[in-house]
């Protein structure tokens, strides 16, 4: 934390930052077709210094999105395939004894990367899961009594396979809360799918991606996203939403204060991406489902089939003050 504040933000104007963001969006949109909304949310999540959980069926481009993000943003990338025999050391790293120097040397694990794809995170045991989740929370790991700082920016994209029930360990609510956002990708529309089928191979395209920015710039962007203006009127709106989730008979567990903070941070990041002068109600509404979907617990026997539906219902029932 100390180090970061010592870093001087790059002397880049807000306009230049916006150009970078537009470029990044464009580059990502060229690879992941027809998923502009999810790409924007993923970027917002990154700018809000949160972690992302993508929940969807296999083959919908979860891995592709994570990889593309690292490429476009110029971040070091590691992929950890979570399996039931994955050990915490496989994530964090191990100390190896060196014959020549007679000393232990730490071999950093894949977690020491700027962008980590934790693939199928619910297939690993809770022990392995919590090793990652702790690293996410603290942005540091402790091995053999030594605390090691993880790189900055540090962004975890975890994927979860919802259909898979056998042999999985679904993340409990408390762990889900560590992810700022949860998004679903969904099938591409017909047009995008046609382009995908007829067009170039995505993997070779990926190799050709030129990064539009680097880690330092990303930190500056994150700083700018934090500085987005939040008016009292918007806080009123967020409070009204949060209050509704707590008081509604349809919802058993409403948004916590941390959830409300997440909503503000995400709305600010999105407003920055969209170039709004401050966080608008539209920004709040756009991120609401991704923020609240995995944090709300619907009451038993309600009519809502999915968290997204419940979130839309909340948005439709709360007047914007």
């Amino acid at each position: 934390m100390q180090q970061r504040s010592a870093l001087e933000p790059l002397p880049v104007s807000k306009d230049a930052q916006r150009v970078v963001i537009e470029q990044a969006r464009k580059a990502l949109g060229g690879i992941i077709l027809g998923k502009n909304q999810q790409i924007t949310l993923a970027l917002a999540c990154l700018l809000a210094r949160g972690h992302l959980l993508i929940e969807d069926l296999p083959g919908l481009g979860k891995t592709m999105l994570a990889q593309a993000l690292s490429r476009v943003l110029g971040l070091s990338f590691q992929r950890i395939q979570f399996t039931s025999d994955l050990l915490p050391a496989d994530i964090i790293g191990v100390s190896v004894f060196r014959q020549d120097s007679s000393e232990f040397e730490f071999q950093p694990g894949p977690v020491f990367s700027q962008l980590i794809l934790a693939d199928e995170v619910n297939r690993a045991t809770p022990k392995a899961q919590s090793a990652l989740l702790e690293a996410m929370e603290e942005q540091q790991v402790s091995v053999d009594g030594t605390t090691r700082q993880l790189p900055d920016p540090f962004f975890v994209v975890a994927t979860q396979n919802p259909g898979d029930q056998i042999g999985t360990f679904p993340l409990p609510e408390s762990q889900l809360d560590r992810f700022l956002m949860r998004v679903e990708l969904g099938y591409p529309n017909e047009e995008s799918e046609r382009e995908l089928l007829g067009g170039e191979d995505r993997r070779s395209m990926m190799k050709e991606i030129v990064p539009v920015t680097g880690p330092d710039m990303l930190i500056a962007l994150q700083q700018s996203a934090r500085e987005v203006h939040v008016s009292d009127a918007l806080i009123d709106y967020i409070q009204a939403l949060v209050r509704h989730t707590r008081e509604s008979a349809d919802i058993e567990i409403g948004l916590s204060p941390r959830g409300a903070q997440a909503l503000v941070a995400a709305a600010k990041a999105l407003a920055f991406i969209e170039g709004h002068s401050g966080a608008y109600p539209d920004d709040v509404q756009a991120v609401f489902s991704a923020i609240a979907g995995h944090r709300l617990k619907p009451a038993g026997g309600t009519r809502f089939r999915s968290p997204a539906e419940l979130c839309h219902h909340v948005l439709d029932s709360v007047a914007i003050p």
Partner: peptide, 9 residues
């Protein structure tokens, strides 16, 4: 203006 409708929408 409907309930929950943002000014932009």
């Amino acid at each position: 203006q409907e309930v929950g409708e943002t000014p932009a929408r």
